[in-house]
């Protein structure tokens, strides 16, 4: 067991972890945050996608012990977040979920798309969704919901591409 310190949904956490415990299990089993679902545990399906330091990441192939100092945001941590609120509403309106198992990971990815690529055309939206599998909806409602949120925020899904850029690598 090793002690790690990190932030989960805005709360500083200090916890004992086994090195082999992946981030999703740490959150689900130790922090009782079960909104992050496990679909494959080998990085393909995207069900476990959450935010690490503001960017979507796979929690099943990230080990909690390697998250020292990181800021984690799970599906439980988006209260008051305007893009997520808009996406949640649009997901319901557009029937973008059925069984609900892929939904938390899908929402985190969708939020990344609408904030990072406002105005992205449908083909780009679909490419960005390629790392999140859904077995129920055929993606039709999911794509519609993302486009609807882009339209609401004044950046309708179209040919234009903009980029909100995260942190650059440091210079020496």
């Amino acid at each position: 067991m090793t002690t790690i310190r990190l932030t989960v949904n805005g709360q500083p956490i200090e916890a004992e972890v086994q090195p082999r415990t992946h981030l999703a299990d740490f959150l689900r089993e130790q922090q009782l945050l079960t909104g992050t679902n496990l679909g494959c545990e080998h990085g393909i399906c995207g069900a476990c996608t959450l935010e690490i330091d503001g960017a979507p990441a796979r929690s099943c192939i990230t080990y909690a012990i390697d998250c020292e100092g990181a800021s984690i945001r799970t599906i439980e941590g988006f209260d008051g977040d305007a893009p997520m609120a808009a996406l949640r509403a649009a997901f319901s309106t557009e029937h973008a979920l059925q069984c609900g198992y892929c939904t938390p990971g899908m929402l985190v990815t969708a939020r990344d798309i609408v904030t990072r690529l406002p105005g992205a055309p449908e083909a780009r939206i679909r490419k960005e969704l390629s790392g999140n599998l859904c077995r129920c909806t055929g993606y039709a409602g999911i794509v519609r919901a993302i486009r609807a949120v882009m339209a609401q925020s004044g950046t309708p899904s179209g040919p234009g591409l903009a980029s909100v850029r995260p942190v650059a690598p440091t210079a020496p």
């Binding site: 909104g35 992050t36 599906i75 949640r88 319901s92 309106t93 979920l97 939904t103």
Partner: peptide
């Protein structure tokens, strides 16, 4: 619109793994 959606969108579905 579906009555089921709220809990799943919140990450509050009760799957057996939970």
């Amino acid at each position: 619109p579906r009555k089921e959606d709220r809990r799943f969108l919140a990450g509050e579905g009760e799957f057996v793994g939970n």
